[in-house]
Design a protein around this nucleic acid. Structure first.
Length: 277
DNA sequence: CTTTCGTCCTGACTGC
DNA sequence: TGCAGTCAGGACGAAA
């Protein structure tokens, strides 16, 4: 599912098709995704020029030249496929937007966990979806002093804390599992048990895991396709995610990766490499 | 305030 | 071969 690196990759793939281009056609094939598609969605996009494609957390933000922005969340199974506007639609193509050169973005989302919203330029930070977001993990505001403060006194497991978008955005189940593995921290560790030294270790590892995934062009699971629509996107091999029963990749360890369920989500970890604090 | 849990959805997979 | 059941998971909102 798309986490920060995948969304970043989608943004990069969308830019050549949309930035600087006028939207000449908008097709909305159903009234709702996870939430209703806003009434003004089509009229806001129709005829507008896309000034910028940005990303905040796991949201794609399309800034238009008419004062509006389109916010876009890919949910679990959302894909952006770029092709000619003449391409026949596929079963779960819910939204199609075409540019002034006959190219189109097909938003395909079988599970419909994705959603779109419209927001005026000066209301972005205060809107429902953005108001409670924490700092970007690759930005200056995400530093050890901040994370120490954010985890202080909280007994919730570190796994859950890192998934909490109010603490830090962009991380999902995969990259949290991976970061905790490389940091050698057991996912059930109460957040408040992390000492400053652990935070100093963990924080740059989170950034490293994300940066490497971005560099790899976003990782690919079952239902993610790179925005360019091109073949050959990177098939990521994870250290622990989805590796239950496989040998821990740490060469000085002969244990196997185990799976537990935390708050209904699978956590993968090595019982020897990752310590309970 | 913090924390947990139900909800949304369909395709892939498992087991009988 | 068919069918029922389970699982995957992001974010919201309600409830404890």
């Amino acid at each position: 599912m798309p986490e920060l690196p995948e969304v970043e990759t989608v943004c990069r793939g969308l830019r050549p098709v949309l930035e600087g281009h006028k939207i000449t056609e908008v097709r909305k094939n159903r009234p709702d995704l996870r939430f209703p598609i806003p009434e003004n969605f089509v009229s806001v996009l129709q005829g507008a020029r896309v000034e910028h494609i940005g990303r905040r957390a796991k949201y794609i933000l399309m800034r238009l030249d008419n004062g509006w922005n389109i916010g876009w969340h890919l949910g679990m199974s959302g894909r952006m496929v770029i092709d000619d506007i003449t391409r026949p639609e596929e079963k779960h193509d819910h939204i199609v937007i075409a540019n002034d050169e006959g190219k189109a973005v097909f938003f395909c989302d079988p599970r419909r966990f994705g959603y779109v919203f419209t927001v005026a330029e000066d209301e972005i930070e205060d809107c429902k979806h953005f108001a409670h977001l924490g700092p970007e993990p690759l930005g200056n505001a995400f530093h050890a002093d901040y994370l120490e403060q954010a985890l202080k006194g909280r007994k919730t497991p570190i796994k859950n804390a890192l998934l909490d978008q109010r603490i830090v955005v962009g991380l999902g189940n995969i990259y949290v599992c991976e970061a905790l593995y490389y940091a050698g921290i057991h996912p059930e560790t109460p957040s408040k048990n992390l000492k400053r030294t652990h935070i100093d270790t963990l924080l740059p590892i989170i950034q490293d895991v994300l940066n490497k995934a971005i560099a790899a062009g976003g990782s690919s699971l079952k239902d993610y396709v790179q925005a360019s629509g091109e073949l050959g996107y990177f098939q990521h091999q994870f250290a622990v995610y989805g590796q239950e029963g496989e040998k821990c990749p740490n060469c000085s360890c002969d244990k196997s990766v185990e799976r537990i369920v935390q708050s209904g989500r699978s956590s993968f970890y090595c019982p020897e490499t990752q310590l309970r604090l």
